[in-house]
C-alpha cells in the first residue's frame, strides 16, 4: 500500500473510531455522566487524602524545627574551647545547625529581655561582672536525633564545662504529630486503594453495560469484517474522553479549593511549609500529570477486561 493511500486509510479508520466513540457517548449519555462523576469523586478523595498527608508532614516538620538542645557553658570557659566545640558539633551527623552566643552577647540579650525590670538590672550592676557564660544551641534533623546527640555531648571531656543543658522537649508533641502522620499515611493508602477499587469496579461495569447494550451491533460489525481492535478502539477513546473531562473538573475544583483554603492555612504554617496551591499546581505539575496517566491506564486496562467476553467470536 502506498504511503498516501495508507495515510488516507488511517484517517478513515480513525475518523470512524472517533465517530463511533462520540455516537456511543451520545447514546449512553447518562452512563457517561455517571462514569465521569465517579471518576471525579475518586480523584477528589485521593487528592484530599494527599493534601491531609502533606499537611500533617508539614506540621511535623514545623514542630521539629522548634525542638533544640541548649548548652549553657561556665562563664570561665575559654572562648577558643567553645568555638572548637561548636566546630565539633557542626560536624556531627544529623546536626543541621549550631548557634553560638558568646558571654557578652548573652548578657546583652539578657539585659534587653529584662529592660523593664529594674531589680534585675540593678543586681547585674551590683555583681560588677558578667555572670553569664556562652550559649550553644544545637538543631537536629528530627526530634528523634536529640537523645544520641545528648549522649555524645555527655561523653566528651568538655562536658564538665557545661553548667546547664536544656532540652526544649517538644518531642512529645512531635512524636504525637508523627504518629498522627503515620496513621494518616496508612489510612490514606488504604482509602486510596479502596476508592481506586471502587472506581475500577464502576468503570468495569460501565463499560460492560455499554458493550452489552451494543452486543448485537458488535456481532454484526465483526461479521462484516471489523477487527477486535476496531471494536475496542471506540471504547478506549471513550475512556480517554472520560478521564480528560474528569481530570479537568478535578483540577478546576482543586484550584477553587486552594484559593479558598490557602489563606486559612497560611497562619498555621507561618514558614510557608504548606499550601494546597504549591502541592497541586507547582510546575511541572507532576502530581496532576501522574494522576491523569494512572487513571487513564486503569480505565483502559479495566475496559479491556470488560470487553474481553464480548469480543470472542
Amino acid at each position: 500500500m502506498s504511503s498516501k493511500k495508507y495515510r488516507a486509510n488511517f484517517l478513515i479508520v480513525w475518523g470512524r473510531i472517533i465517530a463511533h466513540a462520540g455516537q456511543n457517548m451520545w447514546r449512553n449519555a447518562s452512563l457517561a455522566l455517571v462514569t465521569i462523576t465517579i471518576l471525579v469523586l475518586s480523584l477528589i478523595s485521593v487528592n484530599a487524602l494527599l493534601a491531609v498527608r502533606a499537611a500533617t508532614t508539614a506540621a511535623v516538620t514545623a514542630v521539629n524545627k522548634q525542638v533544640d538542645l541548649s548548652l549553657f557553658f561556665e562563664p570561665a570557659a575559654p572562648e577558643k574551647t567553645i568555638t572548637d566545640i561548636v566546630a565539633y558539633l557542626q560536624a556531627v551527623p544529623n546536626v543541621t545547625s549550631v548557634e553560638y552566643t558568646n558571654p557578652d552577647q548573652a548578657l546583652a540579650a539578657f539585659r534587653a529581655r529584662h529592660a523593664n525590670n529594674d531589680e534585675i538590672l540593678k543586681s547585674l550592676d551590683v555583681l560588677g561582672e558578667n555572670p553569664l557564660g556562652a550559649l550553644v544551641v544545637v538543631h537536629a534533623g528530627s526530634a528523634g536525633d536529640y537523645p544520641a546527640i545528648i549522649s555524645l555531648v555527655q561523653a566528651q571531656p568538655w562536658n564538665t564545662l557545661i553548667q546547664q543543658r536544656s532540652f526544649e522537649d517538644k518531642t512529645q508533641i512531635a512524636s504525637r504529630v508523627e504518629l498522627l502522620t503515620s496513621r494518616a499515611r496508612t489510612g490514606s493508602i488504604v482509602l486510596a486503594i479502596l476508592f481506586s477499587l471502587i472506581a475500577i469496579m464502576i468503570i468495569f461495569n460501565t463499560v460492560r453495560v455499554a458493550i452489552y447494550t451494543q452486543r448485537d451491533e458488535i456481532a454484526i460489525k465483526k461479521l462484516v469484517g471489523a477487527t477486535n481492535g476496531f471494536i475496542r478502539a471506540p471504547f478506549f477513546v471513550e475512556g480517554f474522553v472520560y478521564v480528560v473531562i474528569a481530570c479537568a473538573v478535578v483540577i478546576g475544583l482543586l484550584a477553587a479549593t486552594a484559593r479558598v483554603v490557602d489563606p486559612f492555612l497560611g497562619p498555621l504554617f507561618s514558614d510557608g511549609g504548606f499550601s494546597l496551591h504549591t502541592l497541586f499546581f507547582a510546575a511541572p505539575y507532576e502530581l496532576l500529570v501522574a494522576e491523569t496517566i494512572i487513571v487513564l491506564l486503569l480505565t483502559w486496562i479495566t475496559s479491556a477486561f470488560a470487553m474481553r467476553r464480548y469480543l470472542r467470536t
Binding site: 454484526i220 465483526k222 461479521l223 462484516v224 469484517g225 477487527t227 477486535n228
Partner: peptide, 23 residues
C-alpha cells in the same frame, strides 16, 4: 488468528442471516 479471520470475512465472504443482522 482472530484479526486474520476478520480480514478473510471482510474481503472474501458475504453473509446473509435469517435475522438479517442489520444495524
Amino acid at each position: 488468528a482472530e484479526d486474520e479471520l476478520a480480514r478473510i470475512r471482510k474481503t472474501k465472504i458475504g453473509f446473509v442471516f435469517q435475522a438479517f443482522n442489520l444495524l
